[in-house]
């Protein structure tokens, strides 16, 4: 659809017509190259026999076969599943619970909200550092409770390969549940006042008002919050590195740390690329339908 270039249109106006496109095109070009070009590059590498250095001869699915033969991958996938389910579930529960509590005309709401949300401003590395200290069996909670008189108390999840993954859940929930709260609170506040007044006149108590009127209205907020938390969970890398370093052994490996260690520590570019492609596929499966519905929603 080329704009009609009439001979009487002055040059200045023609430039003006095309300016928006000139402005957007560098960004678009960057996006094409650095996002889509790189994705294609990574996808291609995953089909080659690249090792320490990229090798561009096509090898079919051999890297995927090697990837799927790596036991560590299944640990990482299992961890991601457990972690995502618990992290999303608990953060949602705490978030909605706190949002409803804060919606009860609490005078010092601003202060409390600030306290609930500040962990979100921290780097996951800081969060990991702090929880590593608190969960440290020698000097942390275990030691604290033992000194309080419970000599037999044991809380060594951080160094126990069966439970270490839950320490990541604990720290991640601490950091992100306030965020879920803020999203829900904003959602609660966006419900029309008159609807709540109508519910009061209809005789609904607070419990019924929330569960029968307000929460159903907030369905889109639920959806966005789940998507955001899921997205955080799949990308989680920093926290694992800082809290457990993926250990003990590789007990708390996640796809993101798996990919990183194969790419930068073991120099197995092909396997790393294959695992990155799997991560991308997972994110696409979650995010694309969501974005599609969101963008369609705006147009209406």
């Amino acid at each position: 659809m080329a704009p009609r270039t009439h001979s009487t249109v002055p040059l200045g106006q023609k430039i003006e017509l095309w300016l928006p496109r000139f402005v957007v095109s560098p960004l678009f070009a960057l996006s094409l190259f650095f996002v889509y070009g790189f994705i294609l590059w990574t996808v291609y590498i995953s089909f080659t026999k690249s090792g320490v250095m990229p090798n561009y001869s096509f090898e079919g699915l051999s890297q995927y076969e090697r990837l799927w033969a790596t036991p560590r991958l299944y640990v990482a996938l299992g961890n991601m599943f457990v972690f995502s389910a618990l992290f999303i579930g608990i953060s949602l529960a705490i978030g909605i619970f706190l949002a409803i509590l804060l919606d009860q005309r609490v005078r010092i709401e601003g202060v409390i909200r600030t306290i609930y949300l500040y962990p979100m401003a921290l780097s996951f590395i800081v969060t990991g550092t702090v929880w590593k200290w608190i969960l440290n069996p020698g000097l942390g909670i275990q030691n604290f409770v033992r000194k309080a008189g419970f000599e037999e108390f044991t809380f060594d999840w951080l160094v126990n390969s069966d439970y270490a993954i839950y320490t990541i859940v604990i720290a991640a929930v601490w950091q992100s549940s306030g965020y879920a709260m803020a999203l829900f609170l904003a959602g609660l506040r966006s419900v029309d006042d008159e609807i709540l007044k109508a519910a009061a006149i209809d005789g609904a108590g607070s419990f019924r008002t929330y569960f029968s009127v307000v929460l159903p209205i907030m369905r889109p907020v639920f959806l966005s919050t789940v998507i955001i938390l899921a997205h955080l969970a799949i990308k989680s890398f920093d926290l694992v590195i800082a809290l457990t370093g993926g250990g003990p052994g590789y007990a708390t490996a996640m796809p993101a740390t798996f990919m990183y260690s194969f790419a930068f520590q073991r120099s197995e570019l092909g396997v790393a690329a294959a695992s990155a492609v799997m991560m991308l596929a997972t994110v696409i499966a979650i995010v694309v339908p969501y974005l599609y519905s969101e963008l369609r929603g705006t147009k209406q």
């Binding site: 029309d192 008159e194 609807i195 007044k197 109508a198 519910a199 009061a200 006149i201 209809d202 005789g203 609904a204 009127v213 159903p216 209205i217």
Partner: peptide, 17 residues
Amino acid sequence: PRDRNIAMVFQSYALYP
């Protein structure tokens, strides 16, 4: 409000969507 035996019609109608 629930015990005042009243009903109210709002400007925005305030129907439960």
